[in-house]
Design a protein around this nucleic acid. Structure first.
Length: 461
DNA sequence: GCATGATCATGC
DNA sequence: GCATGATCATGC
C-alpha cells in the first residue's frame, strides 16, 4: 500500500505497473472483494494507492490531472472487447450547461486517465483476476472531435428542457448512461419541471472496445471513414455523412449499382451502395466509426403511396435466455438503448426505386418503454408455455402481435420453420425476434423530417 | 391490403 | 452452420 504523492505521471504509471499480474485477493487489505459493483476499483484505490474512494469532481491524482479507472475486458473470438461502458462522473444538470466542453466536468476529470485493465473470466472469482495492463490514456484528436460533439448534444437537451429525454444512443462515443439504484433516482433540471433520470458521462462499451483494440493492445483491424480528423472541426459526424451522400439523393437503385459495379442481390446491397459513396472498401457497418459508435445500417423501402411495407427485424432471441433476464439487463434493452441506426431510405417510383435520404435514428425513451411491454409480455408467454397451433403446414403462436402495440411485435426470424431454439418445456420453436412495426417506422421518419426542417446541416456550437 | 409466418442471400 | 439484414408468400 502507498499513499505517497507522485511527482510525475511517469512515476505514477511506474507504480501502477507493479500491480500487473497480482491477483486482487493479494492486494485487497480492507475486505472489499465481497462488495458489489466496482469492488475491484475500490480495492485498487484503497489497498493499492491508499486513498479513500470519493466522488470528487477533481481527478483522483489531482496535481497530475489523472483519473484512475479500473475496468474489465473480455477475450472473445473476435478479439478483445470491453466488458462494459466506462462510467465517469455524474452530470449535474443544474450547472453543467453553463460550461464549455473544455471546461466541462467530464474534461476536468477524465481528459487523462490511468486505465488499469483486468481480464474478466466468468469462471473466476473476482479475487483471482488481476490487472493485465496499466496505461495512461488521453483522447486522440479524431475521437476528441466526436466526443466534443457528443457533449454538446447532451448539453443541448439540457438547455431545451429535455434532460428527461436524454438517451445513451443520442451520442456516438461519449454517452449519458443512467446511474442510480433504479428509475426513481431522479434529479431536477434547469429548464423543465420534469425530473430527469440521474445520468453519468460514460464512454460506450463499443468505443472502449476500440480503445483497447487500437490504442492499447494493437489489434487494429478496420477502415476509417473519416480519413483526416480535421474534417470534423466544423460539422458533426452524422451531418458529414449525410452531406457526403446527399448528392446521390434522387438517384435510382439501378444507376447506383451500375455506377459502383455492384451485382447480385445481397440483402445488404444498400449498405454496399452507401459504402461506395463514402469511399469505403467493404461494409459500412465494419468501419471504425460505425463500430466505435454502434451504428447499424437499415434499409427502409417506402411505397409510392407512402406506406412502408416491411417491419424492421433485429437479431433473434433465445427463449430460455430471455426468461432468465430482467428488462434492464436484457439483450433487447441493451441493443436498443445503445444502438444508433442509419436509415437508408428508398422510395419506389414508376420504374425503379430512388435513394431518397439517409437518416440517423435512435429509439426515444418513451417508445423503448413500449418495447418493454412487448418484451415483458413475451417473457410471460414463454413462461406460461407458448401456444403453437399448426394449420396447413403453418404454425401460429400467441406471441405479441403487431396490433397489440404501436411500436413493436414478435415474429419468426429464421432460415426456415425448422430453424429452431428450444423452449423451456423442451419443445422446439422456430427462431423469433422483436420487430419494429412498419407503421411506427413511418411515424419516426416523419418526426425526423420535422426535425431536419428546423435545422441547417451545419450548426454552430 | 394487411398481418403473420416463412424464407432468402451472403459472409464469417 | 449460423447470424444478420431483408424480403417473400399466403390466408383472412
Amino acid at each position: 500500500m502507498t499513499n505517497r504523492k507522485f511527482k510525475s505521471r511517469e512515476e505514477l504509471l511506474e507504480y501502477a505497473l507493479t500491480a500487473v499480474g497480482v491477483p486482487f485477493y493479494k492486494i485487497d487489505k480492507t475486505n472489499r472483494l465481497s462488495t458489489g459493483k466496482g469492488a475491484l476499483g475500490t480495492v485498487i484505490e484503497e489497498s493499492f494507492f491508499g486513498y479513500m474512494p470519493n466522488s470528487n469532481s477533481k481527478p483522483d491524482f489531482e496535481e497530475l490531472g489523472v483519473e484512475l479507472k479500473v475496468t474489465p475486458f473480455k477475450r472473445t473470438k473476435k478479439g478483445i472487447s470491453a466488458k462494459e461502458r466506462l462510467v465517469c462522473n455524474i452530470i449535474d444538470y443544474m450547472t453543467e450547461y453553463h460550461k464549455t466542453f473544455e471546461t466541462s466536468s467530464f474534461m476536468s476529470k477524465c481528459s487523462t486517465m490511468l486505465l488499469m485493465l483486468y481480464e474478466y473470466v466468468s469462471e473466476f472469482d473476482k479475487g483471482n483476476m488481476s490487472i493485465d495492463r496499466a496505461v495512461l490514456f488521453s483522447f486522440p484528436e479524431e475521437d476528441l472531435l466526436i466526443i466534443r460533439d457528443d457533449w454538446y448534444k447532451i448539453i443541448r437537451k439540457i438547455r431545451e428542457g429535455k434532460a428527461h429525454e436524454i438517451s445513451e444512443s443520442d451520442t456516438l462515443y461519449l454517452g449519458a448512461c443512467t446511474k442510480g439504484m433504479n428509475a426513481s433516482s431522479k434529479r431536477e433540471q434547469p429548464f423543465s419541471d420534469k425530473l430527469a433520470m440521474q445520468r453519468a458521462y460514460s464512454l460506450k462499451a463499443s468505443y472502449m472496445t476500440y480503445v483497447l483494440r487500437e490504442y492499447i493492445y494493437g489489434e487494429r483491424t478496420s477502415e476509417n471513414i473519416i480519413k483526416y480528423p480535421g474534417q470534423l472541426r466544423e460539422i458533426s459526424f452524422e451531418n458529414w455523412i449525410i452531406e457526403r451522400i446527399s448528392p446521390y439523393f434522387g438517384r435510382t437503385f439501378k444507376s447506383l449499382t451500375d455506377e459502383f459495379g455492384l451485382t447480385g442481390t445481397p440483402k445488404n446491397i444498400n449498405e454496399l451502395i452507401i459504402a461506395k459513396i463514402l469511399g469505403v472498401k467493404g461494409r459500412i457497418s465494419k468501419t471504425t466509426e460505425f463500430q466505435k459508435a454502434n451504428i447499424v445500417p437499415k434499409t427502409i423501402r417506402i411505397r409510392r403511396d407512402g406506406h412502408i411495407v416491411e417491419s424492421m427485424s433485429f437479431p433473434t432471441f433465445k427463449f430460455i435466455d430471455l426468461i432468465n433476464q430482467e428488462w434492464e439487463e436484457s439483450d433487447l434493452f441493451d441493443y436498443l438503448s445503445e444502438t444508433k441506426f442509419l436509415f437508408i431510405v428508398f422510395r419506389e417510383a414508376s420504374i425503379d426505386s430512388v435513394l431518397e435520404s439517409v437518416k440517423f435514428w435512435n429509439i426515444p425513451n418513451r417508445d423503448l418503454e413500449e418495447v418493454r411491454k412487448v418484451w415483458e409480455r413475451t417473457k410471460e408467454v414463454i413462461i406460461s408455455g407458448v401456444e403453437i397451433i399448426e394449420k396447413d403446414g403453418r404454425k401460429t403462436n400467441n406471441f405479441p402481435k403487431k396490433y397489440e402495440n404501436a411500436v413493436a411485435h414478435v415474429r419468426p426470424h429464421a432460415i426456415n420453420a425448422e430453424d429452431v431454439y428450444p423452449l423451456p418445456d423442451g419443445r422446439l420453436m422456430t427462431k423469433q425476434c422483436f420487430w419494429l412495426n412498419n407503421d411506427y417506422i413511418k411515424s419516426q421518419l416523419e418526426v425526423l423530417d420535422e426535425i431536419s426542417k428546423g435545422f441547417g446541416i451545419r450548426h454552430g456550437k
